[in-house]
Simulated assay, not measured.
Amino acid sequence: MRFEKIAPYTYRIPRQGKMRVDAVFFASEEILKDLEGENYASLQQLMNVATLPGIVEPALAMPDIHWGYGFPIGGVAAFNPEEGGVVSPGGVGFDINCLPAGTRVLFHDRYTRPIEEVAREQEPLLTVWRLGEKAEAGKAFLLLSREAETLVRLRTEGGFILEATPDHPVYTPSGMRPIGTLKKGDQVAVHPFQGFPHEPPPSLTLLSEERAQALGLALGFPRAADVLKEKGLLPLQADHPHLPAILRLLGYALGDGTLYRSRGRGYLVLYGDEEGLLEAKEDLKRLGFQAGGPYVRVRNHSFRGRTFTYREASLKASSRALFLLLHALGLPEGPKAQTAFALPHWLFFIPAWLKANFLSANPLSCQHGSPSSDPADP
């Protein structure tokens, strides 16, 4: 694929072959890597748009460019009817690749729901995944439905099953391909974490206002409980929408973090890889707390005559209210190796998808965040 940079974040594909005009697209370095990862299939579609009759120069693609149906998603084109311009169904939109009712959709908080239930949540936060990268949270903004006459069923060697309309794209080593074009032996990308079916949490109070007030006074943080209440975190029930984020932070801190007091303030420090710490920082932000970092330093070590370099990252939050919240939920203060503590009893009575949030963030149980991806053969 031949293109040239003509301005910051702006690239041109010069007119070539049957193209009637140049094509211009807007992309960052990260977007360029994504385009390369799909073997420039989206840019090839943009070049096809540039061949249409009556097109007004240039054919354009916005930064959300990705493989579409005829037109690339994010493609923009204008046509002059006096010069034979056309109305392109691919540009206007004539089909929507679909998944059947009952298909389970993975949410960021580790649970799954049938796709037809996604719209019931006010701001559904789903798991968004790109091949070769870690999963991240992404908001769903549109849910459409239609009748379909034909469905294709894909089954991988590992037992993963996907049903979809034949035009539904799936990740393959050669980029996005319609599921209906796949053959036995082709490879497709499968995210290894399937999630747990959503179950309503039990009616259970994890932290009451009275207990938080009493513990805050004992710790010397008389206003901490009031701050938690102002942030909407008291009383804390098992069905609180932010409990998954709290559980991830609690699990992370129990595995590789520390809680301590100094000069009348409370501190939480987490250690680990930068990617995992950034996820923890997002969870803190979701709860209304700020954190500094990740702070990174490179340390040189010597052991038995051998020297090695270790890259260490940490995240630090200063908040009496956060200290109170995590300590009340079972996180011990100070060095955990020197302190006897037990997991909170309520952890054993919440649904599996909530337990998964606690375990997925605990470095002692598994790697923080979502696992990496591997291809699978259908």
Rank of each mutant, 00 (worst) to 15 (best):
I6R: 07
P8I: 15
I13Y: 08
M19L: 05
V24G: 08
E30R: 14
L35P: 02
L35S: 08
L43T: 07
M47Q: 11
V49Y: 03
A50N: 02
P53Y: 02
F71N: 02
P72T: 05
A77K: 09
F79Y: 05
P81H: 04
E83N: 08
P89I: 00
V92P: 00
G93I: 01
D95P: 00
G102R: 10
T103V: 01
R104F: 11
L106Y: 00
L106H: 00
F107M: 07
R113E: 09
E117M: 02
V118N: 00
A119T: 09
P124K: 04
G138E: 12
G138M: 07
A140F: 05
L143R: 10
A148M: 05
A148S: 00
V152E: 05
L154K: 01
E157W: 09
G159D: 02
F160P: 04
I161V: 09
P173W: 01
S174T: 15
G175N: 04
G175A: 01
G185N: 03
V188K: 12
P192I: 06
G195Q: 03
F196S: 03
P197R: 11
P197M: 03
P200R: 14
P201D: 15
P202T: 14
S203Q: 09
T205H: 13
S208N: 14
R211H: 12
A212V: 14
Q213H: 07
Q213S: 09
G216C: 06
G220C: 07
F221S: 05
F221Q: 05
A225K: 13
D226R: 15
D226M: 15
L234V: 07
P235I: 08
L236G: 12
Q237R: 15
P241I: 10
L243H: 13
A245F: 14
R248I: 08
Y260M: 11
R263C: 02
R265V: 03
Y267G: 08
Y267T: 14
V269R: 13
D273K: 09
L277P: 02
E282T: 11
K285S: 15
F289C: 14
Y295I: 04
R297T: 04
V298F: 08
N300Y: 08
S302Y: 04
R304M: 11
R306N: 02
E312W: 12
S314D: 07
S319N: 11
R320Y: 11
L322V: 12
L326C: 10
L326F: 14
H327E: 11
L329Q: 13
P335R: 01
K336Y: 07
A340M: 06
L343K: 06
L347W: 09
A352L: 12
W353Q: 11
F358N: 12
C366V: 07
Q367P: 06
P375V: 04
A376M: 03
D377M: 10
